[in-house]
Design a binder for these strands. Sequence first.
DNA 1: CAGAATCCAAATAGATACTG
DNA 2: CAGTATCTATTTGGATTCTG
Lengths: 125, 125
Amino acid sequence: MYEKKIPKDFSCGMAVLMEIIGGKWKSYLLFLISNGIRRPSELHRQIPTATARVLNLQLKELEFHGIIQKEIYPELPPRSEYSLTALGQSLMPVINAMDAWGSGHVGEFRLLMERKSGSLFPSGE
Amino acid sequence: MYEKKIPKDFSCGMAVLMEIIGGKWKSYLLFLISNGIRRPSELHRQIPTATARVLNLQLKELEFHGIIQKEIYPELPPRSEYSLTALGQSLMPVINAMDAWGSGHVGEFRLLMERKSGSLFPSGE
DNA sequence: CAGAATCCAAATAGATACTG
DNA sequence: CAGTATCTATTTGGATTCTG
């Protein structure tokens, strides 16, 4: 299930990081978890556009890569909580730098999208 | 061609960044270009595992997002060269932070892969 | 609520052949 | 060499249903 990506070589450090945080919702999830959102249902409430299944998959991968850890409480109704591991915490400065750059350029980015949307090849006029 | 991803909301800065550098080879390409590898054929030589077509696609997206720029020399044989834009250069500290983290944890990462490969669900014994 | 199973759609990447 | 066009394979994400 997780073997798929091993063939890549990791000669470039970024490739390792991308492997870990590259999923569609992982950045959100890390952001939320680092802010104390712990339970799957809460996370889903924060990211309603994704299905619970997909979030679950990505959480599993983050867990598999040792970035987050899951505590399961054998109660009824069931409850589980996620938190950052030490490795995950060591990632946070990088995450924050990434988030800061993105936030600082999101306006620019939107403009670019609007300006160029549908006209990737301007008619020169 | 590029409209596909717009539906995402960019409430989280990381999502913007991931949008820009999220492709399979973009990290390598940025790394190489920032190190002065400029021509498509050179880039391809450095990343022989990817096809020229795919590299080309990702270069196009990086260019579209304003991270790199292309200079085309109307010669024979044809020649073109890529370089970082100002925006691309503003990204480099982040890229470097990402690369540093990845490089610092690649050993750990490999071990994890080996240890867990094929045994995501340990038999508990 | 948490999460697994199944089926399906979209996105992304690779192989190959072709043009100037 | 640079770049495009097809076609295909793989990966990824989404919808739905079902269990405890």
